[in-house]
Simulated assay, not measured.
Amino acid sequence: MTRHSLSLLLRNEPGALARIVVLFSSRGVDVESLSLAPAERGDLSRLDVVVELQPGRTIVQLIKQLGRVVEVKSVVDRTHDEAIELGA
């Protein structure tokens, strides 16, 4: 299994998150963590999610499938972004 960190911007509409979760479930995507918060624009929300893909599934394929969900405005794979460490 491969782990990926995705950041999505989606329209703030009833059922938007449910459609994304159903997409994950129907494609055998395991959600490890999920965080949803309002974006700077009031009509959008930011969804940060860490997923594990089954062997044979690619992140490119999943991103294309997410892009077909009407409420999704953008998807960014943040898997290889550098982590920010805060000093103590």
Rank of each mutant, 00 (worst) to 15 (best):
E52S: 07
L17C: 00
L8A: 06
G56D: 13
A16V: 09
V21N: 14
R11E: 14
V75M: 08
Q61K: 07
S25E: 08
P14S: 02
F24R: 06
S26T: 06
R3H: 10
D81M: 00
L86Q: 09
S45M: 15
R27L: 10
Q61I: 02
E40Y: 08
D43P: 05
I84G: 08
L17T: 04
E13Y: 02
R41A: 14
L36C: 12
S26M: 04
V76Q: 04
E32L: 12
D30T: 14
G87Q: 07
H80S: 12
D30E: 05
E85M: 09
R46M: 11
E40W: 03
R46A: 14
D30K: 14
P14N: 02
T79V: 01
P14D: 04
Q54G: 01
L34H: 03
A18K: 15
A18Q: 11
V50H: 05
A83T: 15
D48T: 14
R57N: 13
S74I: 01
R46D: 02
S33I: 11
I84V: 15
S25K: 14
L53P: 05
T58Y: 08
R68W: 08
E52P: 02
S74Y: 11
L36Q: 09
R19M: 10
N12M: 06
V22K: 12
P55I: 04
V50I: 11
E82H: 06
